[in-house]
C-alpha cells in the first residue's frame, strides 16, 4: 500500500505548490513586461517539469552505476521497464477515457432540471466507489470479471469516477444563473446555452477534476498487478516478495514520477484551455 500512498501524496503535494504561480498572475510586480507576466504564469509548470526530469535522470544514473545482482539486472532491464511503464499508462489512459465518457455526460445530465432530483443518489454511489478500499475492489471485481487487464480497468474506472463527476456538476452549478437567463433571454436554445456559456465557464473546474482523477489512477493502477493486470506494480510486488530493495524503490519511484508527469500534463492543459477573460 505504501507506494501508492506515496505516489498520490507526492502528486498532490507537488501540485499544490505549483498551483500558486499560474493561479496568481497579478503578483505585486505586475506588468514590468508582458514577457515577465507570461513567465510568471508558466514558472511553476517549468519548475515541476524540471524536477520530474532531474529525478528521472538521477534514477537512471543510479541504475547504470549501482552494483546489481543478475536477478535485479533482468528485472530492471530498460526494455522490461519500458514494457511495464507502457502497460501502466495504457491502464491509466483507458480507465480515464472510460471515466470521461461516462462521468461528463452524466454530470451534465444531472444538472439539467428534469434530472436534478437524481443528483443526491448518484453522488452517494460515486462516493461509495471512491470510499471502498481500492485493493478490495480490484480483487473482488477480478473474481467476478476474471483476472486480467479488464478487471483492473473496471475497478480503476469505479475508483476515478467521483472526482470527474463531482467537478463536472460543481463546475456547471457555479455558473451564474443570471448568465443562463441572459442567454435564454437572447433567444439561445438550452443546448446553445449549455455549449456556449455553461460548459466553457465550467471548463477550469472540470479539468481540475480530470487531473485529480488521472493522478489517482496512476497510483491505483499499481494495484493492477494483483489481478494480473500488468503495470509498474509488478516491480513493487517483486521487490517486496524477493526482498530486492532496488527493484522496490525503482518501481515506487517510477509510479511517483509518472503521477507527477501526468499531473504536469493536466496542469498544462488547464493552463492553455482556461477561457480567456476569466
Amino acid at each position: 500500500m505504501s507506494p501508492r500512498g506515496l505516489s498520490t501524496e507526492a502528486g498532490i503535494a507537488g501540485g499544490d505548490s505549483a498551483v500558486e504561480a499560474p493561479g496568481n498572475p497579478t503578483a505585486p510586480s505586475v506588468p514590468t513586461s508582458r514577457v515577465r507576466a507570461r513567465w510568471n504564469s508558466w514558472k511553476g509548470l517549468v519548475y515541476q517539469l524540471a524536477g520530474i526530469l532531474l529525478a528521472f535522470l538521477a534514477l537512471m544514473f543510479w541504475l547504470q552505476t549501482a552494483d546489481l545482482s543478475p536477478i535485479e539486472l533482468t528485472t530492471l532491464a530498460p526494455a522490461a521497464l519500458w514494457v511495464y511503464t507502457v502497460e501502466h499508462i495504457q491502464l491509466t489512459l483507458l480507465a480515464a477515457a472510460i471515466v470521461l465518457v461516462i462521468a461528463i455526460p452524466l454530470g451534465i445530465a444531472l444538472t439539467r432540471r428534469p434530472l436534478r432530483f437524481l443528483t443526491a443518489p448518484v453522488l452517494v454511489i460515486a462516493n461509495f466507489g471512491q470510499a471502498a478500499p481500492a485493493i478490495g475492489v480490484v480483487v473482488l471485481l477480478a473474481f467476478w470479471v476474471g483476472f486480467g487487464f479488464w478487471a483492473a480497468t473496471l475497478s480503476l474506472v469505479l475508483y476515478a469516477m467521483l472526482p470527474v463527476l463531482r467537478n463536472t456538476m460543481v463546475g456547471l452549478q457555479q455558473v451564474d444563473a443570471h448568465l443562463v437567463e441572459a442567454g435564454r433571454g437572447m433567444g439561445m436554445s438550452s443546448a446553445a446555452v449549455l455549449f456556449r456559456v455553461e460548459l466553457p465557464l465550467a471548463v477550469p473546474v472540470m479539468l481540475s477534476g480530470v487531473r485529480t482523477a488521472l493522478v489517482l489512477l496512476v497510483g491505483t493502477a499499481a494495484l493492477a498487478t494483483f489481478v494480473n493486470g500488468g503495470g509498474l506494480g509488478i516491480l513493487i510486488t517483486t521487490g517486496v516478495n524477493l526482498s530486492l530493495t532496488s527493484v522496490l524503490v525503482t518501481g515506487a519511484l517510477l509510479v511517483a514520477l509518472l503521477a507527477l508527469l501526468i499531473d504536469w500534463l493536466g496542469r498544462v492543459v488547464e493552463h492553455v484551455a482556461r477561457p480567456k477573460g476569466l
Partner: peptide, 17 residues
C-alpha cells in the same frame, strides 16, 4: 420570439469568456 426582443438584465449579464 426572444431573438426578436432585446433583453437587458441587472449588471449587464455579459458572458465573461
Amino acid at each position: 420570439l426572444r431573438r426578436g426582443i432585446g433583453y437587458v438584465i441587472q449588471a449587464g449579464g455579459l458572458f465573461p469568456h
